[in-house]
């Protein structure tokens, strides 16, 4: 009994995190003048784990920004911080500022539901509802707006067309969405997000479960969408980031290491850590 008390009372050793010290100061080599999204000293904790460490990042409006980094570096946490999806996680705490259209989304008067209407999120694994194709797209609209049947039909068709899915499902609108292929399901999820007219789209490894043809369709879609909205994508696929992103940010151990125009970052990274990661020397 006494021994356990002594053990419990013993001061906890402060263990430095040597690997964190190896991360060089962040290097931002791209100047985004009018960012749609901006984080200022953003930190995110999961209980005592410091998942995002004072990240400063400006995300270009109507462009594609890729976030890359090894597993556990905080990519998805950063992405989910943008539309406050981390709020649903117990013990998750956020400090610093995250500005969406110059407004701090962690400010006192921000409604997370309205924020998520503005900033859609596409998950790694397609997650259609176990409903019909039509209901999947109509669901979000009905949640946020009152619409007549005609209006609903029109919006559903427009969203499916925008997601390049209409031609493939127009005769199967009343079939279960679960019967669609993986690529179609992911585009259906994108259509579902587009139906409520978001200004920004966050994509968390949207193609990791898809074959190259389905991946190409999603990437084509992203090229179309970036004309009208801001896209942030988290990806493990270096070639995908190189193909589609205008800017790329490399995160490591929760810190921003390097942020640059994608071509520059992949052709001549400035930080050795970036070089070693993108060339596969670690990760």
């Amino acid at each position: 009994m006494l021994r356990s008390l002594v053990k419990r009372a013993a001061p906890k050793a402060v263990v430095p995190e040597p690997e964190v010290l190896q991360v060089p100061p962040p290097l931002t080599l791209v100047d985004v003048e009018d960012p749609a999204i901006e984080s200022r000293n953003l930190s995110v904790w999961y209980a005592r784990k410091h998942a995002i460490r004072e990240v400063n990042l400006k995300i270009q409006r109507k462009g594609i920004t890729a976030i890359i980094g090894p597993s556990g570096c905080g990519k998805s946490t950063y992405l989910r911080a943008i539309n406050r999806m981390n709020d649903t996680i117990r013990n998750c705490r956020t400090t610093g500022q995250l500005l969406v259209e110059s407004e701090d989304v962690y400010g006192p008067n921000v409604d997370p539901v309205l924020l998520r209407r503005k900033v859609g999120l596409i998950f790694q694994k397609p997650n259609p509802f176990p409903k019909t194709v039509y209901r999947n797209v109509a669901f979000g609209i009905q949640l946020h707006y009152r619409a007549t049947k005609e209006e609903l039909d029109r919006v559903v068709e427009a969203a499916l067309r925008q997601a390049n899915l209409w031609d493939e499902v127009k005769d199967r609108l009343d079939d279960s969405a679960l019967g669609l292929s993986g690529g179609q399901q992911q585009r259906l999820c994108i259509a579902r997000a587009l139906a409520i007219h978001p200004e920004m789209l966050l994509m968390d490894e949207p193609c990791s479960a898809l074959d190259p043809v389905a991946t190409a369709k999603i990437e084509d879609l992203m090229f179309e969408l970036k004309k009208v909205m801001t896209i942030v994508i988290v990806t493990h696929n270096m070639q995908q980031a190189a193909r589609i992103a205008d800017h790329t940010a490399f995160l490591y151990l929760g810190k921003l290491v390097e942020y640059n125009v994608t071509r520059e970052l992949f052709e001549r990274p400035t930080q050795e850590l970036t070089e070693n990661y993108i060339t596969g020397r670690f990760g």
């Binding site: 270096m238 190189a242 992949f266 052709e267 001549r268 990274p269 970036t274 070089e275 993108i278 060339t279």
Partner: peptide
């Protein structure tokens, strides 16, 4: 190998 960075150069 779709090389990048130093490898590509």
């Amino acid at each position: 190998h779709a090389p990048v960075a130093r490898d590509l150069r």
